[in-house]
Design a protein around this nucleic acid. Sequence first.
DNA 1: ATATTCGTTGACCATTTGGTAAAAAATTGT
DNA 2: ACAATTTTTTACCAAATGGTCAACGAATAT
Lengths: 222, 222
Amino acid sequence: MPLPTDVDRTKQFRSGSIGEKNQQKVLAAATTVFSRKGFAGARIEEIARHAGMSKPNLLYYYNNKTDLYRAVLVDVLSLWLDSIGEFHVDADPLELMTHYIAKKMELSKLYPEASRVIATEIISGSPVIEDFLRVQLYDWVASKGRVLLQWQAEGLMAPIEPAHVFFMIWASTQTYADFESQISAVLRVDDYQTEVYDSATSLVTEVLTRGLGLKSRNAVGH
Amino acid sequence: MPLPTDVDRTKQFRSGSIGEKNQQKVLAAATTVFSRKGFAGARIEEIARHAGMSKPNLLYYYNNKTDLYRAVLVDVLSLWLDSIGEFHVDADPLELMTHYIAKKMELSKLYPEASRVIATEIISGSPVIEDFLRVQLYDWVASKGRVLLQWQAEGLMAPIEPAHVFFMIWASTQTYADFESQISAVLRVDDYQTEVYDSATSLVTEVLTRGLGLKSRNAVGH
DNA sequence: ATATTCGTTGACCATTTGGTAAAAAATTGT
DNA sequence: ACAATTTTTTACCAAATGGTCAACGAATAT
């Protein structure tokens, strides 16, 4: 899932080699730092420390900051896309959407840093992933949107512009990762991961499924 | 609405003076740059250029980068709080919430950069506004949350943890400012402001009011 | 008109930053 | 054991960055 029109600038290592393992460590460290500081604010020396190595050593694995940032984005976007699950017209609308929301929320819980990297990139105007958004994501929304329109035609969902439906779902789920520091400050919880996500999931699911007027195919009509 | 326990580090200018006007220009320029790059990534020389002055000249208005950033946050948070409108227990739930959502969406439309500054700060872990969130915002949510609980007791709203209600509203409205580059890429609109916000507002309002099970006090029961 | 305050500039500086080069150390293949 | 390869370190550099300072120009008040 490489970023569009982008040659693979990343060094290749034989699997099992120490290089491959370290490259992975760098990627993880970079995700952490980029997620908090964005591209411009991240210091590659800080990433190196996080990865437990010196700066020149890090530069041995990724030629420069830009390449490293792109590598992080590729990694993180593939996660994002993988989480999406399958949409089939014939699947049950209520079940499918419930599943999708749960999946997205789980992603926020498991990979909050990944979520924040994407958020930071988008807030910065998506300088790097613009093409990805305009092509891949556009296609994805168009394709899945057709499923929603089908549901709406069958009276299984309120007539709402599909793209916006996804915007709302993404916003409502990713906010728990991206804005963790805010939500944590307001809820005053000790352990964010264990205390927040479960209730958030059921709650967001409840509000959105009802709000979108989603019906189960085999449900007894109201 | 100063940031907690923070002395006012900002130079004071006589109203009408050229200094006052320029300080405002710097603040606006800083909002723009900080909103895209965050604190660490912003270059004060870039802010100065945006404000049409030299770097040392900017430093004449704000002693250093940190002070400027704090000033932007204060400015932007006051906007955020002002937009909130009034909540009264006796007001009509459906109307009040509809109004609130519209107001928040309008804020995203009018001041997207302000929204992005806050978003960037929160994603960075809220290093500067942490106290504000833990005190002022906490109080606000607690107080307004009581209103929602009252509604729920009267059967005018589904029983949903109030704090999360606000999280969802904020997420769904601010996403149109913060993630403009993503939404714009997916919708492929020419003029984002005029083409997106109207439908987004009615749509988010519809989904959320229905999802939250909000009823009008004087409405005929279902 | 002129002294005083306000606003602006250019030259400068210490530190930080992304990145390089060469060589040393560790690992691997034979 | 030893050559080849891979990984790490030390020393370094040019550019960028936040910030200072003294001096100069513009407004303002008396």
